[in-house]
Simulated scan of single mutants.
Amino acid sequence: MNEDFKNELEDELQEEYDFSQMKGGVRGKYYERFQEGTNLVLLDPDVAEAFPTDEAVNEALRMLIRLAKSQVKS
């Protein structure tokens, strides 16, 4: 690591951030999930109220997919 960059980081670290007291961290815990990719979607407030969980959104979208497929077959 570049020595100037390292000193800059050390200078900005606040005293109240004592990372030596942090316990239980796992390096790479979400690495595989991150590699798979994420599809994050922001719902409008009225939609989020009707579908408050990711399970509810997924269930509604799957139902819409089935309905669309059944309309195409008819």
Rank of each mutant, 00 (worst) to 15 (best):
N58D: 07
G28L: 12
F19I: 12
Y31Q: 13
N2K: 02
L43M: 13
E10W: 07
P45A: 10
F5I: 09
L9Y: 07
N58V: 03
Q14A: 07
D46Q: 14
E36N: 15
V41Q: 10
Q71W: 13
F19P: 00
G24A: 05
A48D: 08
D18Q: 15
P52L: 08
E12L: 11
G37H: 14
A60Q: 09
S74N: 10
V47F: 11
P45L: 01
D54Q: 06
E49R: 11
L13S: 02
R62F: 09
K73E: 10
F19Y: 15
Q71I: 13
F19K: 05
D54Y: 02
E49Q: 10
E36K: 15
E16D: 12
A60N: 00
L13T: 10
E55Q: 12
Y30T: 08
E59Q: 12
F19E: 05
E49P: 01
K69M: 08
E12I: 13
V72I: 14
R27H: 08
V47R: 01
Q71D: 10
Y31E: 14
V41N: 01
E12M: 10
N2Q: 05
R27T: 05
E36I: 06
G24D: 02
A56G: 03
Y17R: 14
E32H: 15
A56F: 09
V72S: 03
R27S: 04
N2S: 01
G28P: 07
N58S: 04
E15F: 05
D44Q: 07
E10S: 07
E32S: 14
V72E: 11
E36H: 15
R66P: 00
D44T: 08
F5M: 04
E55W: 06
Y31C: 03
K73Q: 04
I65V: 08
K29V: 00
K69V: 03
D54R: 00
E59N: 02
D54P: 03
Y30S: 07
A50Q: 15
E36F: 07
T38R: 13
R66A: 07
V72Y: 06
R33I: 13
L61Y: 05
V57G: 00
